[in-house]
Nucleic acid binder design. Structure first.
Lengths: 212, 212
DNA sequence: TAGATTGTTAATCGATTAACAATC
DNA sequence: TAGATTGTTAATCGATTAACAATC
C-alpha cells in the first residue's frame, strides 16, 4: 500500500487528516472531495491529493473520497490498529493529567502501568492504572514489554530514565520534559517531543513581532 | 535588526537555539562556533549561520559567537524581554500542572490569574495564582488585559472560550485542547497548538513503520 | 452522456547545503 | 602573519502548487 519513502512533511499532516475525517465521520458525512476537505483544513486540494496518493488511490474520479474508508486507511497507516502498549514514567501533575484524561485507547494504545518515586502514590491507581515504584520498571517491563514510555519525570531525571527505558526495549519515547534527549544513546528508539517551552516561545515571537 | 520576513522554518528553530545557548551559558561556555553548535544540535553549521544571519551579524570571523550575547539576542527576538501577561482557562489536571510546574517567568511571561467553573476551586490559589470563576473572565480582563490565554478547558468548551478570549483582546492563545480552533473567527489572534494526540500518532506511525 | 473529481506529471517555490571571499 | 570562522552567494534538494488527461 505504501509507495516508497514518505516525506516527514506528509507524516506530520496525517494525524490532522485523521482528526478531520473522524469529525466528518461522526457528523455522518459519507463522502468528501479533496477541495471540500482542503477548505475545511486550510490546505490546497492539490496538496491533499498529492499527500494521499503516497499511500495509494483512496479516491474515485468524479466522486471524491469515502470518509469512513479514508479514515480507516489513515488509521491503519498511523498504526492505530496495532494495540501498542504504553507505560507512564513519573506521576506528577502532568503524568496524572495523562493517566486520568488522555484517551490513549482512542489512538490504539493500551496503558499498562505507571511508575513513580513518591511512596505515597505507589500501590494506588489513577485512571484505572496501577502505580508501581520507579525502580520496579525493569522488573515489570521484563515480563510485560511496552512499546512506548511516556516521560513525565522531572527534567533532572529525563536522560537517565530514557536510557533505562531504551535498555528495557521500548521502541518509542513520548518526551514531555524540556530536555533534549541524547538520541545517539537511544539506538532504535523513536523520540517524539512535546516541548511546552518551545511552543510558548514561538507564540511569544509572533505576538511580539506583530506589535513592535 | 530584523532583515525582512523571517521564514517559519527559522522561527520554529529559534526556541531550540535559545535552549541550547542557555545550557551552554549556564555551563560557563563563553564562545562557540557554528560547527560546534551544529554538532551539539544535530544541524549543519551552514544552516546555523544562515539562520542567524536573518537577524544580523552576531558572530565574528575567526572567533565564532559569544554565547551570552547570542543567547540574549535570541531572547530578544523571541520577545522574552517584553513581560507578557498570561491567564489560564480551566484548572483541571493539565491547567494545574502548568500553574504549579511550568516556569512561565523564565520565558518572560507573568501569570496573572486562572479561571475555572468548579466552585470548589474558585477562591483558592494554585502555584501562587488566584483562581476566579470562569464567568469572571471578562470583568477581570477588562481591568487587567492579558496578552495570552492558555486554553486547558475541556474540548467541548474550547471554541467558545477561545472566542471569548479573543473578544477580551488577547493576542495569543496557547491551545492544549485537541480541537482545531476556527482561526477565521479569531481575528488578530495568534494560535499555537499543543496537540497531544497528533504527537502520539506521529510516534505511533514511526514505531509501526519500522516493524511492519 | 456531461459534469465532477481524481491521480500524476510538470512548474514553482522555499529551505537546506556547499563553497568561498572577507576578515577577525 | 597564519589559522579559524563568519556572512553571503550559488547550487541543490525537497515540498507545494498548478495543470490536465484519465475516468467514474
Amino acid at each position: 500500500m505504501r509507495k516508497g519513502k514518505i516525506s516527514p512533511a506528509v507524516i506530520r499532516r496525517l494525524p490532522r487528516y485523521y482528526r478531520h475525517l473522524d469529525d466528518l465521520f461522526k457528523a455522518g458525512v459519507v463522502r468528501i472531495s479533496s477541495s471540500a476537505l482542503a477548505g475545511n483544513m486550510g490546505l490546497t486540494a492539490s496538496q491533499i491529493r498529492q499527500d494521499l496518493s503516497c499511500f495509494g488511490g483512496f479516491g474515485q474520479q468524479g466522486y471524491g473520497y469515502n470518509v469512513e474508508r479514508l479514515r480507516g486507511e489513515i488509521a491503519e497507516i498511523l498504526g492505530m490498529d496495532r494495540d501498542h502498549t504504553v507505560v507512564v514514567l513519573g506521576v506528577g501533575n502532568l503524568g496524572r493529567a495523562l493517566l486520568e484524561n488522555f484517551p490513549f485507547t482512542r489512538y490504539g494504545f493500551r496503558l499498562e502501568a505507571a511508575f513513580e518515586v513518591d511512596q505515597t502514590l505507589v500501590g494506588s491507581k489513577l485512571g484505572g492504572v496501577q502505580i508501581y515504584h520507579y525502580d520496579e520498571m525493569e522488573r515489570f517491563l521484563r515480563t510485560s514489554p511496552a512499546d512506548v514510555g511516556v516521560l513525565t519525570v522531572p527534567g533532572s531525571a529525563a536522560a537517565r530514565t530514557a536510557k533505562r527505558l531504551a535498555a528495557c526495549g521500548v521502541r518509542g519515547i513520548w518526551n514531555f520534559t524540556n530536555v533534549e534527549l541524547p538520541e545517539s544513546e537511544l539506538p532504535g528508539v523513536q523520540v517524539e517531543n512535546i516541548h511546552f517551552a518551545d511552543s510558548l516561545l514561538t507564540l511569544s515571537y509572533f505576538i511580539s513581532e506583530e506589535q513592535p
